[in-house]
Simulated assay, not measured.
Amino acid sequence: MSGKPKLHYFNGRGRMETIRWLLAAAGVEFEESFLEKKEDLTKLQNDGSLLFQQVPMVEIDGMKLVQTRAIANYISTKYNLYGKDLKERALIDMYVEGLFDLNDLLMTHEILPADKKDQHFANMMDKAENRYLPVFEKVLKDHGKDFLVGNQLSRADVQLLEILIMAEEFKPDIFAKFPLLQSFKAKLGNIPTIKKFLQPGSQRKPPSDEKVVDQVMKIFYS
């Protein structure tokens, strides 16, 4: 059996994308086993692989880890992306929880019915531009470093970059009022492991199209 982490999820972003980002930023190669139909999920559920009957699930270090935050916590700790002490970890946790909230808004938009997308988009962009992004612009200004916490890469940086790129996909000029975030995005995008992950052909997933959304509905909601 390969020593690489093995990721079990559908072939799309969803809740696994943050895990892919963290592994890639740490320079860790990983394998993926894609759910293609409901029976694939049922098989994992029936063989006891899913503690709470849900994916994402990651096989790593002899464990079958579930729950997105638990997986991200483990990977971040294992690969030194979780700060140098308890205070730094508390800051990272605060920032990451805010990013998960924004991420949920962005992810939800992709699977909404067409008649609800416009209202959700307006609400999502309002919260992004007036609640979440100003926080991180201020953190970078007050901290005065290239990174959000301490002076080294942490999971908060990686997850912020993931969100910034997603937000920019929805609104290309979203950084007009956030020059420090624009600079942060450019600097982090040049870190070698991250730069590699951003190249075409990597395991980073594109925005979900109708085909992916349809597949998700069949796997999880049929």
Rank of each mutant, 00 (worst) to 15 (best):
G62A: 05
M63P: 00
L65M: 15
V66C: 15
T68L: 08
A70P: 07
I71Y: 09
A72L: 15
N73I: 05
Y74K: 05
Y74L: 06
Y74G: 05
I75R: 00
S76T: 08
S76V: 01
S76W: 01
L81E: 05
G83I: 04
D85E: 10
K87D: 13
E88L: 01
R89Y: 02
A90R: 00
I92M: 01
I92D: 03
D93P: 03
G98T: 06
L99V: 04
L99Y: 03
F100L: 05
F100W: 07
L102V: 04
N103H: 14
L105W: 14
L106I: 15
T108C: 03
T108S: 13
E110Q: 15
I111A: 15
L112I: 13
L112D: 14
A114Q: 11
A114G: 00
K116T: 06
K117R: 13
D118V: 10
Q119F: 10
Q119W: 04
Q119L: 10
Q119V: 15
H120A: 14
F121E: 14
A122P: 04
N123G: 12
N123V: 11
M124C: 09
M124S: 13
M125A: 14
D126S: 15
E129T: 15
Y132N: 08
L133I: 06
P134S: 06
V135I: 13
F136H: 02
F136W: 06
K138L: 01
K138Q: 10
V139F: 05
K141I: 12
F147I: 02
G150V: 05
Q152N: 14
Q152H: 13
Q152R: 09
S154M: 07
R155Y: 11
D157F: 07
D157N: 12
V158R: 05
Q159I: 10
L161E: 03
I163Q: 11
I163S: 13
L164H: 07
L164D: 09
M166Y: 06
M166F: 06
M166T: 10
E168Q: 08
K171S: 11
P172L: 02
P172I: 00
D173K: 10
I174K: 02
K177F: 04
K177M: 06
P179S: 09
L181V: 05
L181C: 02
L181G: 02
F184L: 01
F184Q: 03
